[in-house]
Deep mutational scan, measured.
Amino acid sequence: EVPFKVVAQFPYKSDYEDDLNFEKDQEIIVTSVEDAEWYFGEYQDSNGDVIEGIFPKSFVAVQG
């Protein structure tokens, strides 16, 4: 069931425009499960802007 919160276990950096880049310990709200390997989610950056994109499930852990 979406949405749910995950926390980055590792930093994720990608050159693909659709990917969500983040640092370790970033909290991310997952709004869609793309497939067995990928989530789609969002978070607010330090400027208060909402950043969204896809990212690999293996880089995050589900909270709770």
Score class of each variant (00 low, 15 high):
residue 44 Q to P: 06
residue 38 W to N: 10
residue 24 K to Y: 04
residue 29 I to S: 05
residue 26 Q to W: 06
residue 36 A to V: 08
residue 51 I to C: 12
residue 24 K to G: 05
residue 18 D to Q: 14
residue 46 S to P: 10
residue 35 D to N: 14
residue 45 D to H: 07
residue 43 Y to N: 02
residue 33 V to L: 09
residue 45 D to V: 08
residue 54 I to L: 15
residue 35 D to A: 08
residue 49 D to F: 12
residue 59 F to G: 02
residue 17 E to F: 10
residue 52 E to G: 09
residue 32 S to P: 01
residue 16 Y to P: 05
residue 14 S to D: 00
residue 33 V to Y: 08
residue 36 A to P: 11
residue 27 E to P: 05
residue 54 I to R: 15
residue 62 V to N: 08
residue 44 Q to C: 13
residue 23 E to D: 11
residue 29 I to E: 04
residue 22 F to P: 01
residue 55 F to T: 00
residue 8 A to Q: 03
residue 58 S to T: 08
residue 5 K to S: 08
residue 55 F to R: 00
residue 45 D to P: 02
residue 24 K to D: 02
residue 11 P to W: 05
residue 62 V to Y: 12
residue 1 E to D: 11
residue 49 D to T: 12
residue 11 P to Q: 09
residue 26 Q to I: 06
residue 48 G to S: 03
residue 1 E to R: 12
residue 25 D to K: 04
residue 52 E to H: 13
residue 45 D to C: 09
residue 26 Q to F: 04
residue 20 L to A: 02
residue 46 S to C: 11
residue 56 P to W: 06
residue 58 S to L: 08
residue 51 I to V: 14
residue 15 D to G: 11
residue 54 I to H: 15
residue 63 Q to L: 15
residue 2 V to C: 12
residue 44 Q to D: 03
residue 15 D to Y: 10
residue 41 G to S: 02
residue 59 F to T: 09
residue 16 Y to I: 12
residue 38 W to Y: 13
residue 24 K to N: 04
residue 21 N to H: 11
residue 46 S to K: 13
residue 20 L to N: 01
residue 32 S to T: 07
residue 54 I to Y: 15
residue 50 V to C: 13
residue 61 A to I: 13
residue 29 I to N: 07
residue 41 G to Q: 02
residue 23 E to P: 07
residue 20 L to C: 05
residue 21 N to Y: 11
residue 28 I to R: 00
residue 50 V to P: 06
residue 39 Y to N: 00
residue 10 F to C: 15
residue 53 G to L: 04
residue 35 D to M: 08
residue 9 Q to E: 06
residue 43 Y to S: 01
residue 52 E to L: 08
residue 41 G to A: 02
residue 48 G to A: 03
residue 16 Y to S: 15
residue 20 L to E: 02
residue 56 P to R: 04
residue 33 V to W: 07
residue 59 F to L: 13
residue 44 Q to H: 10
residue 49 D to C: 14
residue 42 E to T: 12
residue 60 V to K: 00
residue 44 Q to V: 14
residue 42 E to F: 15
residue 45 D to A: 10
residue 3 P to C: 09
residue 41 G to H: 02
residue 2 V to D: 04
residue 21 N to V: 07
residue 42 E to D: 01
residue 38 W to E: 01
residue 55 F to K: 00
residue 59 F to D: 04
residue 44 Q to A: 10
residue 6 V to C: 07
residue 48 G to R: 03
residue 52 E to Y: 14
residue 28 I to A: 00
residue 40 F to P: 00
residue 37 E to P: 05
residue 11 P to C: 10
residue 9 Q to A: 08
residue 41 G to T: 03
residue 13 K to T: 09
residue 58 S to G: 07
residue 21 N to P: 07
residue 22 F to N: 00
residue 57 K to T: 11
residue 13 K to S: 10
residue 53 G to N: 03
residue 10 F to K: 14
residue 27 E to M: 09
residue 43 Y to D: 00
residue 19 D to V: 12
residue 50 V to Q: 07
residue 55 F to S: 02
residue 57 K to M: 12
residue 62 V to D: 07
residue 41 G to L: 04
residue 33 V to G: 04
residue 19 D to N: 14
residue 59 F to R: 04
residue 63 Q to S: 12
residue 5 K to C: 12
residue 43 Y to A: 02
residue 12 Y to M: 03
residue 14 S to P: 01
residue 14 S to Q: 02
residue 10 F to A: 10
residue 17 E to M: 11
residue 2 V to W: 05
residue 10 F to Y: 12
residue 28 I to W: 03
residue 1 E to C: 15
residue 8 A to G: 03
residue 40 F to Q: 06
residue 22 F to Q: 01
residue 54 I to D: 04
residue 41 G to Y: 03
residue 45 D to W: 04
residue 12 Y to F: 09
residue 13 K to F: 13
residue 21 N to L: 04
residue 57 K to G: 07
residue 60 V to F: 02
residue 20 L to W: 03
residue 52 E to A: 15
residue 24 K to V: 11
residue 29 I to Y: 08
residue 29 I to M: 13
residue 49 D to P: 01
residue 14 S to N: 04
residue 47 N to R: 08
residue 38 W to H: 14
residue 9 Q to G: 05
residue 43 Y to E: 00
residue 45 D to E: 06
residue 14 S to F: 02
residue 17 E to A: 13
residue 56 P to N: 05
residue 11 P to L: 05
residue 6 V to H: 01
residue 52 E to P: 02
residue 1 E to F: 14
residue 58 S to E: 10
residue 22 F to Y: 01
residue 13 K to H: 15
residue 55 F to W: 03
residue 4 F to L: 04
residue 30 V to W: 02
residue 35 D to E: 07
residue 15 D to V: 10
residue 51 I to F: 14
residue 53 G to P: 01
residue 19 D to P: 01
residue 61 A to S: 13
residue 16 Y to K: 15
residue 51 I to W: 14
residue 15 D to E: 13
residue 60 V to Y: 03
residue 53 G to Y: 04
residue 56 P to I: 04
residue 34 E to R: 15
residue 28 I to V: 04
residue 34 E to G: 09
residue 23 E to I: 06
residue 4 F to E: 01
residue 63 Q to Y: 13
residue 64 G to T: 13
residue 2 V to L: 10
residue 41 G to C: 05
residue 63 Q to D: 09
residue 10 F to H: 12
residue 22 F to T: 01
residue 62 V to G: 07
residue 2 V to I: 11
residue 3 P to F: 05
residue 12 Y to L: 03
residue 24 K to C: 07
residue 63 Q to P: 14
residue 7 V to F: 07
residue 25 D to I: 03
residue 12 Y to W: 06
residue 61 A to F: 11
residue 46 S to V: 12
residue 25 D to S: 06
residue 45 D to I: 07
residue 6 V to W: 01
residue 13 K to I: 11
residue 25 D to Y: 11
residue 51 I to Y: 13
residue 39 Y to Q: 02
residue 21 N to W: 12
residue 24 K to P: 03
residue 62 V to C: 11
residue 24 K to F: 05
residue 64 G to S: 11
residue 12 Y to V: 03
residue 43 Y to I: 06
residue 63 Q to R: 09
residue 45 D to M: 10
residue 57 K to E: 06
residue 13 K to E: 07
residue 60 V to A: 03
residue 5 K to E: 05
residue 46 S to D: 12
residue 62 V to K: 11
residue 1 E to K: 12
residue 52 E to V: 13
residue 37 E to V: 08
residue 9 Q to N: 08
residue 35 D to K: 08
residue 1 E to H: 13
residue 26 Q to Y: 03
residue 21 N to T: 09
residue 6 V to L: 01
residue 7 V to L: 06
residue 52 E to R: 15
residue 1 E to T: 13
residue 8 A to D: 02
residue 36 A to G: 13
residue 5 K to D: 01
residue 54 I to T: 14
residue 57 K to V: 11
residue 41 G to N: 00
residue 59 F to P: 04
residue 22 F to D: 02
residue 7 V to R: 08
residue 39 Y to R: 00
residue 49 D to L: 13
residue 39 Y to H: 02
residue 48 G to L: 04
residue 25 D to V: 01
residue 9 Q to R: 12
residue 64 G to L: 10
residue 3 P to V: 05
residue 13 K to V: 11
residue 27 E to G: 04
residue 39 Y to I: 02
residue 32 S to H: 14
residue 35 D to L: 09
residue 22 F to K: 01
residue 6 V to Y: 00
residue 56 P to K: 05
residue 38 W to S: 06
residue 23 E to L: 07
residue 19 D to H: 15
residue 64 G to R: 06
residue 42 E to C: 15
residue 20 L to F: 09
residue 33 V to P: 03
residue 21 N to D: 05
residue 29 I to F: 10
residue 4 F to S: 01
residue 50 V to G: 03
residue 33 V to T: 06
residue 9 Q to S: 09
residue 59 F to C: 14
residue 52 E to F: 14
residue 8 A to H: 03
residue 41 G to V: 04
residue 6 V to T: 04
residue 48 G to C: 07
residue 37 E to N: 12
residue 31 T to L: 09
residue 14 S to W: 02
residue 29 I to G: 00
residue 55 F to I: 02
residue 10 F to S: 08
residue 53 G to H: 02
residue 27 E to V: 15
residue 32 S to Q: 09
residue 2 V to H: 05
residue 8 A to V: 02
residue 5 K to P: 05
residue 61 A to V: 14
residue 58 S to N: 11
residue 3 P to R: 06
residue 33 V to C: 08
residue 53 G to F: 05
residue 57 K to L: 07
residue 48 G to Q: 02
residue 16 Y to G: 15
residue 18 D to V: 11
residue 46 S to W: 08
residue 30 V to N: 03
residue 39 Y to E: 00
residue 45 D to F: 05
residue 62 V to W: 09
residue 36 A to M: 09
residue 28 I to D: 00
residue 23 E to Q: 07
residue 40 F to N: 04
residue 36 A to H: 12
residue 35 D to V: 05
residue 20 L to P: 01
residue 50 V to F: 08
residue 30 V to L: 04
residue 22 F to M: 01
residue 12 Y to K: 00
residue 50 V to N: 07
residue 55 F to E: 01
residue 47 N to P: 00
residue 3 P to N: 05
residue 39 Y to M: 03
residue 62 V to E: 09
residue 21 N to A: 08
residue 44 Q to I: 14
residue 64 G to N: 11
residue 27 E to F: 06
residue 38 W to D: 00
residue 24 K to M: 07
residue 30 V to A: 02
residue 44 Q to F: 11
residue 64 G to K: 09
residue 40 F to W: 11
residue 8 A to L: 04
residue 55 F to L: 00
residue 31 T to Y: 06
residue 43 Y to P: 00
residue 43 Y to F: 08
residue 11 P to H: 08
residue 36 A to R: 09
residue 16 Y to Q: 13
residue 5 K to I: 13
residue 27 E to N: 05
residue 9 Q to C: 14
residue 47 N to G: 07
residue 51 I to P: 01
residue 54 I to S: 14
residue 14 S to E: 03
residue 49 D to I: 13
residue 14 S to L: 02
residue 32 S to D: 05
residue 12 Y to Q: 03
residue 9 Q to K: 14
residue 30 V to E: 00
residue 51 I to S: 07
residue 55 F to M: 00
residue 24 K to Q: 08
residue 12 Y to P: 00
residue 63 Q to I: 15
residue 47 N to T: 08
residue 34 E to H: 15
residue 25 D to G: 15
residue 44 Q to M: 13
residue 38 W to F: 11
residue 30 V to H: 03
residue 16 Y to L: 11
residue 40 F to V: 06
residue 26 Q to T: 06
residue 51 I to T: 06
residue 11 P to T: 11
residue 63 Q to T: 12
residue 3 P to A: 05
residue 42 E to K: 11
residue 32 S to E: 08
residue 43 Y to M: 05
residue 29 I to Q: 05
residue 17 E to N: 09
residue 15 D to S: 11
residue 8 A to M: 02
residue 14 S to I: 03
residue 63 Q to C: 13
residue 46 S to E: 13
residue 31 T to G: 02
residue 28 I to M: 03
